[in-house]
């Protein structure tokens, strides 16, 4: 039995140069990067829509590079979802089963409709569905034929922020439940962080796993405005100076800063430095040329990201964490 659900080796296609990535069976991989980086090209090459110039694609251990998309058993959710506008929800979901001449189509479709709680939509046409409903139909259509791999190209981009978060969480739950190897493209770091088992950062057609975008979100227990658009944010056991204009002390705020906005050192800075707090390393994980750290400070866990060469210096020691003032964003907490 093959260990990997997806393996891409030395892939050259369109803008992509020498792409290597692998996903274990049932893992959710996120391809993260700016627009035009080659994210969609990568999905197209894996699905077979695009023929690569070079390199191999293996799905569940089987080399599919020369197999046309219709015989790869891949489900692909496009950015615009690509529902068939002329077919009802039921017919949309039944489509992959019909073309594969599967049996018990009605039962299978009804099962997944029920599972995704969209049974009441079965006779509706996509043109009359809301964004969230369309999303669920697209997911149902992708899952119904039991694909070996699920590819998703920014499927939540058309939704508003709140809906996006809700659907995303729901989606991750469904995917995990079905244990389908998934490769998911996004340019939203929050989305990447929340969804991924493993993250591939892609830039100018190359995978660069040296950037970290894990976001720390800490609830501020008390906020005291200072002059010049600053405030002291209290986190019970430590405080940070944060950039915020006239915060309302009666409202709840959250401080957000990425793992990249943290500097970790084994010794106290020789000169007094803003936002220096003491902490302990709870866990670490290698990610390309970087180390991702989970740091405990007071009763809060903070994620940090340091270059590999610094690891030896701080390994096993208590550390000083410096949170870059400019990297902090203060947001009102939304319920």
């Amino acid at each position: 039995m093959a260990e990997f659900g997806l393996e891409v080796t030395s892939l050259y296609a369109g803008i992509l140069k020498n792409i290597n990535l692998s996903l274990k069976k049932g893992e959710i991989g996120v391809v993260f990067g700016p627009n035009g980086a080659g994210k969609t090209t990568l999905l197209n090459a894996i699905s077979g829509i695009l023929t690569p110039k070079n390199g191999r694609v293996r799905i569940n251990g089987k080399d599919v590079t020369d197999i046309p998309p219709e015989h790869r058993n891949v489900a692909y959710i496009f950015q615009n979802l690509a529902l068939f506008p002329h077919l009802t929800v039921f017919e949309n979901i039944a489509f992959p089963l019909k073309v594969k001449k599967e049996k018990n189509i009605k039962e299978k479709v009804e099962f997944i409709l029920k599972k995704l709680e969209i049974s009441e939509l079965e006779n509706r046409f996509p043109g009359k569905l809301s964004g969230g409903e369309k999303q669920r139909v697209a997911i149902a259509r992708a899952l119904v034929s039991n694909p070996d791999i699920l590819l998703m190209d920014e499927p939540f981009s058309s939704l508003d922020f709140e809906m996006r978060k809700f659907i995303r969480q729901e989606f991750v739950g469904i995917i995990k439940n079905y244990r389908i190897t998934t490769l998911f493209v996004t340019h939203d770091p929050y989305e990447a962080e929340e969804t991924a088992d493993i993250i591939f950062t892609i830039k100018n057609g190359k995978i660069e796993n040296n950037q970290n975008f894990e976001i720390n979100r800490l609830k501020i227990s008390r906020i005291k405005p200072l002059n010049n658009g600053m405030a002291i944010a209290d986190f019970e056991t430590f405080s940070l100076i944060v950039p915020v204009c006239n915060p309302n002390p009666d409202k709840n705020y959250i401080a957000e800063f990425s793992a990249d906005s943290i500097y970790v050192s084994s010794f106290k800075p020789p000169v007094p430095t803003l936002n220096t707090i003491k902490g302990k390393i709870v866990s670490h994980r290698k990610n390309g040329e970087r180390i991702i750290l989970k740091l405990l400070t007071g009763n809060r866990i903070i994620t940090g990201n340091i270059p590999l060469y610094m690891w030896n210096e701080i390994k096993g020691k208590d550390v000083f964490i410096i949170v870059k003032y400019r990297g902090i964003k203060v947001k009102e907490e939304t319920k």
Partner: peptide, 8 residues
Amino acid sequence: NAARTMGA
């Protein structure tokens, strides 16, 4: 392309 990946 969606139809193709579904096996059409």
